[in-house]
Design a protein around this nucleic acid. Sequence first.
DNA 1: GCATGATCC
DNA 2: CCGGCTGATCATGCA
Length: 522
Amino acid sequence: VLLHDEVKQAFTEHRSVVCHDAKPFMRSLMADGIDLSFLTLDTAIAAYLINPSKSSYSLASVCGEFLGAEPTGSMESDGTFDFGGTDISAQSCAEAAVFVSRLAPVVLAGLADIHNESLYADIENPLVHVLAKMESAGIAVDTAALLSIKDRLTAETQELTQLLHSIAGKTFNVNSPTQLREILYTDRGLAPGKKTKTGFSTDAATLEKLHDQWPEFIGPLLRYREVEKLRSTYGEGLLHEIAPDGRIHATFNQTVARTGRLSSDQPNLHNIPVRSDEGKVFRTAFVAPKGCSLLVADYNQIELRCIAHLANDPGLISAFAAGEDIHNATAARVFGVALGEVTADQRSKAKMVSYGLAYGMEAYGLSQRLSIGVDEASVILKAYFEAFPNVKKYMDDAIVEARRTGYTETLFGRRRQIPELLSDNFRVRQAGERQAMNAAIQGLAADIFKIALVRIDKLLTEKDFLSRVVLQVHDEVIVEVPDSEKEVVGPLILDTMRGAADLSVPFEVNAAWGDTWASAKG
DNA sequence: GCATGATCC
DNA sequence: CCGGCTGATCATGCA
């Protein structure tokens, strides 16, 4: 049995630690006051860079792929360090260690083959420690505020349930699409919209179309859906995740998203509502502790800027360089009007096209977003590509190149294989084309953001600031800053984010201070 | 365990 | 003509 001090010495003084999925382990050691800061290789993350599309990066599956053999140990590690381990766990840990040591040179060679050494060493590897610290810090939550939000929502769902039962003339489970189908399409005899695998759809888009045929029922039903989602996922869900220290410690996954982005679970803090005022209130429950403020800093239009750079499109580049309202500038070009003559409708359409671009948009998707016909959407899309011809060329080239090589690559060398491009199935192939257009864009944004995160942490650590990054949402960081450090730390963070990469367009970073995540968001 | 429908970027 | 937007996570119902 190892003593604490020996463990501490081993992990803190050994200059080269190789590990498979180091973060949970790091976080567990952190709780015991041990800082594993000399990670040199995480074989799970290396395997992810080599192919980010796998469904699992467990030690067994990675060994199976790279070594053709798997550990036999029955105990799968939960990543925590067990000071009082049994003989059985000691045996399987030892076996796992042997496998990791065999794996290391193989995945290193794999990284070298695809020229990912610096992507790994400069970005992904240091990020492990940064994320472990972020998870371990967690974000402070105002439990009372969260409870009162949840109670209000619960009361409203109960009222709405009563109302819907009385209008339908019977009691039923409002959460059941099956029972809703019966009421809408059988009892009431509404003309069904689109179908799902199991029957007629009852999703929000379908209900909106049916609204005028039975407004007194569908109105409250849509409202119920909205409120119930907020109550269950965010009200109940977040309350369950508050740790004894009054903070939420989510997990940030580094090997899940195929584009290179991070994901968050337990709980997912990447989809806390922001669009509706009603949902946004949950952000008031994420707070700064006494004596601190939250700095919320996010990249403005980072994906569009990536497109401008990658496509080398003069129109987009000059609009960004001039600091113009990008949707207004886009609309002016697309609809052929002067900057001052753009209507709200034109701007909103241009905005939707811009959002869709990063998703590998086609006319159908745009038509759904804008609630217009596919033919009208095609006209807008055509006008867009005529106004920004390099963007069109970039998208076409991305597909051709991905089909030729089998993968796409970001500026920093992050790869994503797209075998779907060779599928016989039209639908699958077209999904592959969208991925080919999207991957280098979203992936580059992810690379840049990860660089910023690593640099921000390095800066705060090296200069012994008490400020710490507590949350990250794709293009946004939330930093808990003691009031005494606000003046110094604020500008440092913004400068770091702006300087994370050197593209042909400048980065713009929006920043706001607040006592809660909500008040910080303009 | 899969399907549906919600949230976010 | 097909048939549906990138990437995620979670709650709930239903077989």
